[in-house]
């Protein structure tokens, strides 16, 4: 699809906005509709769009599969790590109140961090799924069909 100029141009126009919107949804998540899950999906969608236009190989140069795998792990670690930190600080697991001097500030910080973790994890898992399917060698058509 790389020679479809229209697609490439529109894609180049759209993708930055998609990613930015993803970040917005991510950041907005702790006091309005939004959050890590949605944001992650949006960011992944942007990258998948890139993959559709420029091919999987190009996308994998931008975001290598190794990185995706690691980021998925990091996302989960951020999430669980916040919980462990609150534990260490004397609260319950995921008791954000312990994160800051006042509980409500703590809640903000905690939710933000956790949503960040979720966002990273979701985006990278989505991308990983895309890679997993898209980078398979095409199967000789209709093996089972007659």
């Amino acid at each position: 699809m790389t020679d479809h100029v229209v697609l490439r141009v529109i894609g180049k126009l759209l993708i930055p906005f998609i990613l930015a919107y993803g970040l917005y949804v991510q950041a907005h998540g702790d006091f309005g509709p939004g959050g890590g899950f949605q944001a992650g999906v949006i960011v992944a969608a942007g990258l998948i769009l890139y993959g559709l236009i420029h091919g999987v190989a190009a996308t994998q140069r931008v975001v290598p599969p190794r990185l995706v795998e690691a980021l998925a792990a990091v996302g989960v670690l951020i999430y669980a790590g916040v919980g462990v930190v609150t534990l260490v600080l004397g609260g319950n697991f995921l008791g954000y109140g312990a994160l800051d001097h006042s509980p409500s500030h703590g809640q903000h910080t905690g939710v933000f961090l956790v949503e960040l973790g979720v966002g990273v994890a979701v985006a990278s898992v989505m991308l990983a799924i895309f890679y997993a399917f898209a980078s398979r060698k095409p199967i000789a058509s209709g093996g089972g069909r007659r």
Partner: peptide
């Protein structure tokens, strides 16, 4: 769904079909 499809792709590679009776 993702896991199911993932397994299906490999089933297709292994058997050349995803029809259960075959």
């Amino acid at each position: 769904t993702a896991v199911g499809l993932g397994i299906l792709v490999r089933i297709h590679e292994a058997y050349g079909t995803v029809e259960e009776d075959e």
